[in-house]
Design a binder for these strands. Structure first.
Lengths: 184, 184
DNA sequence: GGCGCCTAGTCACTTTTTTTACTATGCAAC
DNA sequence: GTTGCATAGTAAAAAAAGTGACTAGGCGCC
């Protein structure tokens, strides 16, 4: 019942196939909501059955046909109603931090390697987010955009994603330097 | 199967009752892993049955008796083995950001209020994390601690929590200022 | 002296999420 | 000429997580 709100938010400005939506979840929505493709396909079916979405089939010649989903009026109402509710507190699940919490009882070289991988992944995400943000901004400065732009919501969520990944990188580097010092 | 690693990491340096553990999850572990009390009680039972934890009953006079769990040798092994695995990528679920993503279709006053509440909550968490960090540091400076302290793991995870909550506050204030400008 | 919160849980049920394994076609590289 | 990757999904089962209600004594407060 919660995934559907993220789906509505993702589809409201841009209709998508399940496959496309899964890709968008992987590269940008992941910033505030994570979901597997399977979960999305199921949710899309349910949402269509409940009238929140409509689907139209697009025939393709060189590829399998696809179904493009868009938000119905009833879906819009649901989204608006959702924005009136109290959002649940953020849930985070980060296995890397669990490993770090247990550092004194851990296999330190493995953890070190995992931190490195996390830094690398955060660099890539940061890069992707910054590109998306640049697309939203177009030729405008942040100032101009904030005064006149119309994709304020995505601008703000992307900004949050960017600062999150930056902090990941900074933190990872701190962690590596501490490890280098304490577990040479 | 994933919650258990967080439980092991939380119990390895300090045995706890289920109730206490739930409190610790609420106030500090939440930083990298979220869980409800029910989930914890269930997981503790299973882990005891599998020999990862042992429980001893502590009789209390003015309160209900409690069962204190601690990590067994087998639990230690499991924790170490976990630190050798590739951590799964972070999963985040943040309804507030979903609401913000859908800003153009949202009930803006409600969202504004939710952002305010988030800022307030982050302030409180920041405060709590900083106090915990001060406890870990004791009278030492960060420098001294990093060179000689022994709770490096918790230091690092708390640091991550602190920067996360700071960024939440900064982001929330940016979001409010944008809203004030665009939806007066 | 009643209200509500704190401690310390248990039980039953429902929902959500994850995992694993399938079906197909097309394209590029080797 | 087959291996691997991208597109575009479906199905079923198992595991994990979340919700709500309940027990029961103690404490403080007004």
């Amino acid at each position: 019942m919660a995934l559907r709100n993220a789906v509505l938010a993702a589809l409201i400005d841009r209709e998508s196939s399940g496959y496309d939506l899964a890709k968008r979840f992987r590269v940008s929505v992941a910033n505030f909501w994570t979901s597997t493709p399977q979960q999305l396909y199921r949710e899309l079916e349910k949402m269509e059955a409940e009238g929140l979405l409509t689907a139209r089939v697009v025939k393709q010649e060189k590829r399998p046909d696809k179904r493009i989903f868009s938000v119905t009026l009833s879906g819009r109402d649901a989204l608006r109603a959702f924005t009136q509710q109290d959002p649940k507190p953020t849930t985070v699940r980060d296995e890397l931090l669990v490993q770090v919490e247990a550092l004194a009882h851990a296999d330190v070289p493995s953890v070190r390697e995992s931190i490195r991988a996390r830094i690398e992944q955060s660099r890539q995400r940061l890069d992707a987010y910054e590109k998306l943000l640049a697309e939203i901004l177009g030729p405008r400065s942040h100032e101009e955009f904030l005064a006149t732009g119309n994709r304020i919501g995505p601008y703000l969520t992307l900004s949050r994603g960017i600062s999150f990944e930056r902090e990941n990188i900074t933190w990872g580097e701190l962690a590596l330097s501490v490890l280098a010092r304490r577990y040479p």
